[in-house]
Amino acid sequence: MPQDLPGWVAELTDPRRATTLDELADRLVPLAEHAIDVSRRLQTLLNELNDPFKREALYGRVERLKARASEALDEITAEITASGQERLERIWALWPGEKDGEDARELRRRLDAEIVPVLDRQRLRVAEEVAARTSTALEDATQTLLTRVEELAKAVTDLIHDVLPMAREGLTLASRISALSTRARKAGRGPIPAQLQESGTETTRVFDESVARLELEWATLGARSAGVRAALRGAEECAFSQVTNAMTLCVEELAPEHVKVLNEAEARARAIMDELS
């Protein structure tokens, strides 16, 4: 829970409690600074809200999606290559003779001539199909991402146009308060004239209302800014999932035929090994 501040705080910051011109001028200064501070905080949030929609940020978002898709494709390609390599290693693990003998060298020659080309063709066929599906999915996902970012950018632009005048309002208020403080100092010393006292009271009332509204808008804008960042992140993740889902479906479709080719290649390799052993 908020704690009450010491009594002297209000005494030294509330212009309505001033009894002399110097006190009035002194108490108006923190009000002007506060109005400037909240206006600058609002402006900073507006800039942060707009930053993700600049050209550089948009380009970086698309490039990040492409890079992640490329990494995922490299992983799948590596798995496809490993699946063929594992079959060859399985044959060598079953070889009963010496690994560097004449029969072993003949086995290697036969495998290189008859089995490895089959595995390479299969690897390339699957890899090319997965790459083609990935490219198509990436184009679709990128377009969806750009469309969503554009829609969000329009909403953010409208929001900025609504809030920006409020940030300027704080600066205008600060200028008004500073001008009143200057008037009080130029009026000399002693008691506060009735006109200045009335102006000070009215200015303080306007300050309380305006700054309360600006502070609330600043807090609300902070929450909206967080929501925008989350939406952008969600759009990126959704785009990446769209690509990886397409890759996964492609691999699942190609898997039966791929396994069949690997099994046939392994069976042929075993037959060659049996001939030589």
Rank of each mutant, 00 (worst) to 15 (best):
M1W: 15
P2Q: 07
A10R: 14
L12Y: 10
T13Q: 11
P15D: 12
P15V: 13
T19F: 05
A25T: 08
D26T: 00
D26E: 15
D26P: 00
R27Q: 11
P30M: 11
L31P: 03
H34N: 09
H34E: 08
H34C: 07
Q43M: 12
Q43C: 04
T44D: 09
T44F: 01
N47I: 03
L49T: 00
N50I: 08
N50K: 08
R55T: 06
Y59C: 02
E63A: 07
E63H: 10
E63D: 11
L65Y: 03
K66M: 03
K66L: 09
A69P: 12
D74I: 09
I76F: 04
T77I: 07
T77Q: 06
A78I: 14
A78S: 15
T81D: 12
L88V: 10
L88H: 00
L88T: 03
E89H: 11
A93F: 09
W95Q: 02
W95C: 03
P96S: 01
D100L: 05
D100Q: 10
E102T: 14
E102K: 08
E102M: 06
E102A: 09
A104M: 07
A104C: 01
E106D: 06
R108H: 13
R109D: 07
L111P: 13
D120V: 15
R121G: 03
Q122L: 07
Q122K: 08
L124I: 04
R125Q: 15
E128A: 15
V130G: 02
R133V: 13
T134F: 06
S135C: 10
L138T: 03
L138K: 06
E139Y: 14
T142Q: 07
T142W: 13
Q143C: 01
T144S: 12
L145I: 13
E150C: 04
E150M: 10
E151W: 02
K154Q: 14
V156Q: 01
T157E: 11
T157R: 15
D162V: 01
M166W: 12
M166Q: 10
A167D: 05
E169F: 11
G170I: 00
G170L: 01
L171N: 04
L171F: 14
T172A: 12
L173H: 02
R176G: 05
R176T: 12
L180Y: 02
T182M: 13
A184R: 04
R189F: 09
G190M: 11
P191R: 00
I192G: 00
E198R: 04
S199N: 14
G200V: 12
G200A: 04
G200L: 07
E202P: 03
T204I: 01
R205Y: 01
F207A: 00
D208Y: 05
V211S: 09
E217L: 13
T220Y: 07
L221M: 11
A223N: 12
S225G: 14
A231Q: 05
A231V: 00
L232C: 08
A235T: 01
E236F: 06
C238M: 15
S241D: 13
T244M: 10
V251N: 00
V251H: 03
E253G: 07
E253Q: 10
L254S: 10
A255Y: 13
P256R: 05
H258A: 14
V259C: 03
L262D: 05
E264Y: 08
A267D: 13
R268Y: 08
R270A: 07
I272E: 08
I272Y: 10
E275L: 04
L276M: 08
